[in-house]
């Protein structure tokens, strides 16, 4: 951090670039398209505004929040969201950890195998929904149906019978690579000496994993959990393209409910109130992530 002082010495204050012009455009754009819209969301959440009946609008206080909180659909959506995020977190962290340990080993063809394993993360959500919904889970022509039949079982109509577990499977497939990549990065900063020392002390593979690798990864895992939570809370396209929130409300999550209220029922006020909840939910986690990022920024170079 000392070189900043050196820098101001070589370039006097007057010659320092005007950070207003360097930073201004980026900051302005972020304010105009993130902060102001959120303020407007807040504004709309206190107003009656239906796109089909735009004349009848005005301040309604907490009415939108009241109608949302007393609507059982809202609580179903919140529960669905928590089930989806929680299950995907569990699966992706567990499988991601396993895969990361596997790919930490050096073996011929490792780069290729790892590349194949992380590929699902780069598939656009709609396409992954189409693959799973049709080619894998279709009750007649799907691969799973064929597998069940060849094993003498009755094929299952996955999305109709187990809608939420199916979505969880689909989303987990996409996010396992993310967890794996992050954990792998964490593993690679694990010191070899520590592992050697444990071996000399007679630790077996399990003990080594349990008492050295896992604690070391605690911080990495917490970052994975927090970042994934933030991203998973916004899951939309997978549901849109596979179940459309159904059957019934079985896979209607908070983002999907807000979408339905705003663009299905045109009830802007109620949708905005739902959006405020979504932001609060994300912020509960984001505060912790930002604190951690801030600490690392302070800690010097990354």
């Amino acid at each position: 951090m000392t070189h900043h002082r050196v820098l101001t010495k070589t370039r006097p204050q007057a010659l320092r670039p005007n950070s207003f012009w360097l930073l201004g455009p980026a900051v302005l754009l972020l304010i105009v398209w993130t902060q102001i819209p959120f303020a407007l969301t807040l504004y709309h959440s206190f107003r009656r505004f239906n796109l089909l009946n735009p004349e009848r609008q005005g301040f309604v206080g907490l009415e939108n929040f009241a109608s949302l909180l007393t609507d059982p659909i809202f609580w179903t959506a919140i529960l669905n969201t928590l089930v989806l995020v929680g299950s995907v977190l569990l699966i992706t962290v567990a499988v991601g950890l396993l895969l990361a340990v596997l790919f930490y080993q050096e073996f011929p063809g490792r780069a290729l195998a790892r590349t194949l394993a992380i590929s699902p993360f780069f598939v656009m959500p709609v396409v992954s929904a189409l693959i799973w919904k049709n080619m894998l889970m279709h009750p007649v022509y799907g691969l799973f149906a064929w597998m069940a039949e060849s094993l003498g079982q009755r094929p299952i109509d996955w999305l109709a019978t187990y809608p939420m577990p199916s979505i969880v499977m689909m989303v987990s497939w996409q996010w396992i690579p993310f967890a794996m990549l992050l954990i792998l990065t964490g593993l690679q900063s694990l010191s070899k000496e520590q592992l050697e020392a444990a071996k000399i002390d007679g630790a077996n593979a399990w003990q080594e994993f349990r008492y050295i690798v896992v604690p070391h990864l605690a911080q990495t895992l917490s970052v994975v959990v927090m970042l994934e939570t933030i991203f998973l809370l916004t899951i939309f396209a997978e549901i849109y393209a596979s179940t459309s929130g159904g059957p019934g409300l079985a896979t209607t999550t908070l983002p999907y409910l807000i979408y339905l209220k705003a663009f299905g029922e045109y009830r802007i006020g109620v949708a905005a109130a739902g959006a405020v909840f979504a932001v609060i939910l994300a912020n509960i986690v984001a505060i912790f992530v930002l604190r951690m990022i801030g600490r690392n920024l302070q800690g010097g170079r990354t």
Partner: peptide, 24 residues
């Protein structure tokens, strides 16, 4: 540092939190 953290925080805003006004 505060500015940078603020910028990063905008990435953590869920799109549904701003979609309605942006749409309008």
């Amino acid at each position: 540092q505060g500015l940078l953290l603020w910028m990063i925080s905008t990435k953590m805003m869920p799109p549904v939190g701003v979609i309605i006004p942006v749409y309008l």
